[in-house]
Amino acid sequence: MDFSFFITQAISGMTMATLLFLVASGLTLIFGVGNVFNFAHGSFYMVGAYFGYQLVAIWELNFWIALVLAGLGAGLVGMLAESLFLRRIYGRVNEGGFQILLTYCLILIIDDLVKLIWGTEYKSLPRPKGFSGAVTFGDIYLPSYNLLIIAIGVVVVVASWWILTRTRPGKIARAAAVDREMVDTLGVNVPLTMTLVFGIATALGGMAGALAAPLRTVTPGAGIEVIIDSLIVVVLGGMGNFWGAWLGAILVGEVNAFAVAFVPKWASLFSFLVMVIVLIFKPEGLFSPRQVRKV
């Protein structure tokens, strides 16, 4: 195999991996920090993509402003959903099951609302100005938008790691994950913290949607298609672990990219195989300390 193909294939795997990570980052945050299993996370990804479409294609806003606004918009919808519905089931017996049921209902509701507002036609966004070309090194041909996405992924992983471990709000959020009551007695408004964490997580999902829109199809049902892969990534990386999610996404993306190149017929089996193998040998995720193996 020649070297330039290796690089090209690796970078294409990275593009897929980064978009996967960006969706999974919100999921790992809400999972690891908020202890909420948000099955509807993919729907917020879809909502973000539609917001992006509305802002750029209909209202003709600048793509970068639209990207931020789409993230904020999805975050607002998320906070609304959390404070109206999810908050009511915290602390119930079998909370996990109720979370699945409730967020599943959210998927159903959001899907239809999107259909009511934007219809069922496929939508698409052009790549932003300045990023429609490609960078070439000899034989290697790399679309600049793909490179940009990879860079944004790195920024997000570093920033969220820094916020969570080095700043006060981040530390509060992590403490709330471990012991809600204790943090509450220390005078922190736990419900508000939860709402904010949920808002940030869904905003990350929404931003991923808007960022992916120029490369993908904006369509109803887009959410349900990314959720399982993102779950895989979150579990591979260890829940709540941003670096883990990033590396997990890269693992899935690269395994997929080279499976496509060498065993194209069976490529679609590989992401599940990776997950099965990792979970059998290191169930707590590749990048977490060994501590969760309990009954």
Binding site: I232, F272, K294
Partner: peptide, 15 residues
């Protein structure tokens, strides 16, 4: 245990 059991069963089911 816990959520890891859930995820592993999901992975086998999807496989």
């Amino acid at each position: 245990g816990g959520v890891y059991f859930t995820m592993l069963t999901l992975a086998f089911g999807q496989l």
